[in-house]
Nucleic acid binder design. Structure first.
Length: 260
DNA sequence: ATGACGCACTTGGTGCGA
């Protein structure tokens, strides 16, 4: 079974690109982030027309997550237990479902903005709460494949950004963020894609400005973490999808999972 | 190397992104 994750930077602006990509990528389950719309604005019909069920969680023009699946979509979960709020708002940053034998979570981890912004503290709280929820999911069913996929907004290693000097005191590379990410390994999670896409210089995001993409100046921040019960047979980053007019600033990240 | 920010919003300047 093939599972992908993609921060699309607006589902409505990019719907033709998304369905076109799905139609030629043999993807069974697509986790989507940054749909930037409410549920009633989400272009669900376009997914259904090409054979995918789709579930969306969005409340306004910010954030928004979805899962599209052609191998079933059951036990839908909107947000995770204990998910923190930001300024009293529970933001649409997590949606989960059982798809073809794998529990898939589409996650949009808070950006953090700057190290002294309340959003940074929120990001760390959000990651801690996700860790707690993940521990309880594994306690309940350790044998069931579980994938935490999406835009983690963390570059785990120095080589996951093109120049650490540029990121000196920025979010995405700070020690607390990296520790919060690495701590998932304590639960048995591993990066499904990295073994198949070794660095350095391998990224999933390139800023729209300053010719970052053609200069190959990006960041590796979109990850697929899988539980130890998840048997991964392949992984890939579709860098080509970042090319051309109307591209998202993120590329799709893909893994193949052997399911019984 | 596959190109010089893009999206959404009480639509035109602002918030957000990483």
């Amino acid at each position: 079974m093939r599972i992908a994750t993609w921060n699309v930077n607006s589902a409505r602006a990019r719907i033709d690109r998304i369905t076109s990509w799905l139609s030629r990528s043999d993807v069974d389950v697509l986790a989507i982030q940054e749909t930037k719309c409410r549920d009633d604005q989400f272009p669900a019909l376009a997914f259904e027309e090409i054979g995918y069920e789709v579930a969306h969680h969005g409340t306004n023009q910010w954030n928004g997550v979805a899962i599209a699946s052609r191998v079933g979509l059951s036990r839908l979960q909107i947000g995770f237990p204990g998910q923190p709020a930001f300024r009293d708002q529970l933001e649409p940053r997590a949606i989960g479902a059982d798809c073809g034998g794998v529990t898939v979570w589409s996650l949009y981890v808070p950006n953090g903005r700057t190290l002294d912004d309340p959003h940074y503290e929120y990001k760390l709280r959000w990651l801690d709460a996700l860790w707690d929820a993940s521990a309880s999911w594994l306690d309940a069913s350790a044998d069931r494949p579980l994938a935490l996929v999406g835009d983690w907004n963390i570059a785990p290693l120095d080589e996951d950004v093109w120049d650490m000097a540029v990121f000196g005191n920025s979010t995405h590379v700070s020690d607390p963020e990296r520790k919060a990410y690495q701590r998932f390994a304590d639960l048995g999670f591993s990066d499904a894609v990295r073994p198949f896409t070794p660095g350095p210089g391998v990224y999933t995001y390139w800023d729209y400005t300053q010719l970052r993409f053609p200069r190959r100046e990006g960041m590796r921040i979109d990850h697929m973490l899988v539980s130890s019960a998840t048997h991964v047979t392949g992984g890939r980053i579709d860098r080509d999808e970042r090319k051309g007019k109307g591209a998202s600033d993120h590329a799709p990240v893909i893994m193949d999972v052997a399911v019984q």
